[in-house]
Design a protein around this nucleic acid. Structure first.
Length: 274
DNA sequence: ATTTGACCCTGCATGC
DNA sequence: TGCATGCAGGGTCAAA
């Protein structure tokens, strides 16, 4: 699934095709997603105009103007993708939802594992329980080494799952947590509470650096991720550790190790990361 | 309170 | 070739 760079790539790819357009038809082929597709989705979307598509963490927020103002929340889960397709393009397996637009294009949602979902925002961003308690955006000034340092004091959790905690910072998933820790030279198994402020400064900077680089490359395509225009992402070639266990470290040549932390595969270099 | 584990679902790679 | 197993970009919930 998409982590923040993939969701942002999706947003940038689809927004120009949707913003300002009216939704003329909605086709739902599968209602059983992680959250059941809202029963009133079609009725409320048809005839509505897309004002803006924003992103918060790994959620896409569609601001809509119709009979009423409303916001649609779209999460891509592990295997979801949204892309622009031509009207009339035959749906493939796992193409669950289409939003047909008044400009001859449509937005098509594909999600084999169905861990993603679409739902109405409950009130405001501050009120919706899915968004209300999220930590800061990783590319914002609110996310820095000082935040990591202060939140981690006394915690014995390994630093990698700590960095992936959405209350700490959002958008850093398994790929980019591993990559950021490699760039910062920190062992992912180290207890979060036993890392210095100086090293957390480096970790925050490394996380920003790797996320920006991945967005620039259109995200990371592992299996079938495609951005909003159907293009794969090219960051995979730039990965230093994720998915490279038992291969040599690009920096020192030592064989990369694989461990499990927080039930997630974690690859690191025992030589470069301490 | 923090931390761990199970679970949601399908597809794919691997090994027997 | 077929079958079983394990693993995959995330997030939520219950239990330890």
């Amino acid at each position: 699934m998409p982590e923040l760079p993939e969701v942002e790539t999706t947003r940038r790819g689809i927004a120009p095709h949707l913003e300002g357009r009216e939704i003329t038809e909605v086709i739902v082929r599968q209602t059983r997603l992680r959250v059941p597709v809202p029963a009133d989705l079609v009725d409320r979307l048809v005839g509505a105009r897309v004002l803006e598509i924003r992103r918060r963490a790994k959620y896409l927020l569609f601001s809509l103007e119709g009979a009423e103002a409303m916001t649609l929340l779209w999460h891509l889960g592990m295997s979801g993708s949204l892309r622009i397709a031509r009207i009339g393009e035959l749906p493939k397996k796992h193409d669950h939802i289409d939003l047909v637009l008044d400009n001859g294009a449509m937005l098509r949602y594909h999600d084999p594992r169905r861990f993603g979902f679409v739902d109405w925002l409950a009130g405001s961003v501050e009120q919706d329980r899915r968004l209300a308690r999220l930590g800061p955006e990783p590319l914002s000034a609110a996310f820095d080494g000082q935040r990591l340092y202060s939140l981690s004091r006394g915690r014995r959790l390994a630093v990698k799952p700590f960095l992936m905690d959405n209350a700490v910072v959002v958008g850093v998933g398994n790929i980019y947590a591993a990559e950021a820790l490699f760039l910062a030279g920190i062992d992912p198994r180290r207890a979060a509470g036993r890392i210095s402020a100086e090293r957390y400064d480096r970790l925050a900077a490394a996380a920003k650096e790797v996320l920006v680089a991945a967005i620039t490359q259109g995200g990371t395509t592992l299996r079938d991720f495609v951005g909003g225009t159907g293009e794969p992402g090219y960051f995979k070639q730039r990965l230093n550790v994720y998915g490279r266990h038992h291969q040599p470290c690009r920096r020192c040549g030592v064989e990369l190790r694989l461990v499990t932390l927080g039930q997630r595969a974690s690859v690191f270099c025992a030589c470069c990361q301490t």
